[in-house]
């Protein structure tokens, strides 16, 4: 029935591919962890420790954050009905960072869950502001939408950095702005399970989001409360973005590229496309992180930078390829 006759079996196949990448990710790094050292009596202790405390959490964090950010991008695209938005082109991510910075300033002792809650609220407010501006601006081209979001994000970032500069918090802000998984350890990534749960909620409501993506009138005709679906989606996107930023920092472009590629091949019926978006998001982040660890071994390039390079190239390709189609 689909234009590209992909048999169902390709989804498990893709999942297996991600599994292989994940396995590879476990064995890349400065410390010598390999099947040999793991089973070898002498080094067992140290290798197992590194695997359980550092490598496994890092790999899980990559998968969870990648899937969640890609799905957030998809959700935002359906809700705003524009192909070029994602949390970093809608003011969401910048607002979450503003929230993180304000917590560090005003309540530095707050536990990480509380920080994330504040960041989520800020992200929600920032995205709401973005949508309110969109209602006021005449949208002559679909490209105006992300431009508005990028400008809004720029203004918020300027505020954040002004305060951070005055209060000597620039380093923390940079850490949230640039995704980096090198500091992920056991006990410092578990927040991401929350974003995985939110991704699950998005899947359960996939039909409603698909209908919302057809616009308010069609949604109303089909008996769906457009405002409720919109609110649910924005809460999921804001909380996911905040959780990812609080844990490992922003991963740019991911939410833009992955949903667009999946849309080209699988279409936008979210029940079918969301699992693909989640898998491909995890896969792309894993691949970028592994590459970042290998390129200047034994040092690392942070994933934010890797994604920036690979992502902008892929994005340009999509932009030129789809051209008139994209709106």
């Amino acid at each position: 029935m689909k234009p590209l006759p992909l048999p169902i079996a390709t989804l498990p196949l893709a999942a297996m591919g991600i599994g292989l990448l994940a396995a590879w990710s476990l064995f890349v790094g400065v410390s010598d962890v390999s099947l040999a050292t793991l089973f070898d009596g002498g080094a067992t202790d140290q290798a197992t420790q590194v695997l359980l405390v550092s490598r496994l959490p890092r790999t899980l964090a990559l998968i969870l954050a990648g899937a969640a950010m890609a799905v957030s991008g998809l959700l935002l695209q359906m809700l705003v009905r524009n192909r070029f938005v994602e949390p970093s082109t809608a003011g969401t991510a910048e607002s979450a960072i503003f929230g993180m910075m304000m917590v560090s300033l005003l309540a530095p002792g707050m536990p990480v869950l509380g920080r994330m809650a504040v960041a989520s609220l800020c992200a929600l407010a920032g995205t709401g502001l973005f949508l309110a501006i969109l209602r006021q601006v005449p949208l002559r081209s679909p490209l105006v939408v992300p431009l508005v979001g990028i400008m809004l994000g720029g203004v918020i970032t300027a505020m954040t950095e002004f305060i951070a500069y005055r209060q000597d918090l620039i380093q923390s802000v940079r850490a949230w702005e640039t995704g980096d998984f090198s500091a992920i350890l056991l006990g410092r990534y578990e927040l991401l399970w929350l974003s995985a749960a939110l991704t699950g909620v998005a899947y359960l409501a996939a039909d409603r989001f698909t209908v919302a993506g057809m616009g308010r009138d069609v949604a109303t005709n089909l008996g769906i409360d457009h405002r409720k679906v919109m609110a649910l989606g924005l809460v999921i996107v804001s909380m996911t973005t905040a959780a990812v930023i609080a844990t490992c920092g922003m991963i740019p472009f991911l939410g833009l590229i992955v949903p667009n590629v999946v849309s080209l091949v699988r279409g936008d019926n979210m029940r079918g496309s969301l699992p693909w978006v989640a898998l491909m998001g995890a896969g792309l982040v894993l691949a970028c992180d592994i590459a970042g660890r290998l390129v200047i071994h034994p040092y690392e390039i942070p994933i934010g930078t890797m994604m920036g390079v690979i992502g902008s190239a892929l994005f340009l390709y999509l932009l030129l390829r789809r051209n008139g189609h994209a709106g």
Binding site: T210, G215, N221, S263, G267, D268
Partner: peptide, 13 residues
């Protein structure tokens, strides 16, 4: 109800 001018960006079959 079906209104006129249904602009849909979603790629649905």
């Amino acid at each position: 109800i079906l209104r006129q001018d249904n602009q849909i960006m979603s790629r649905l079959t």
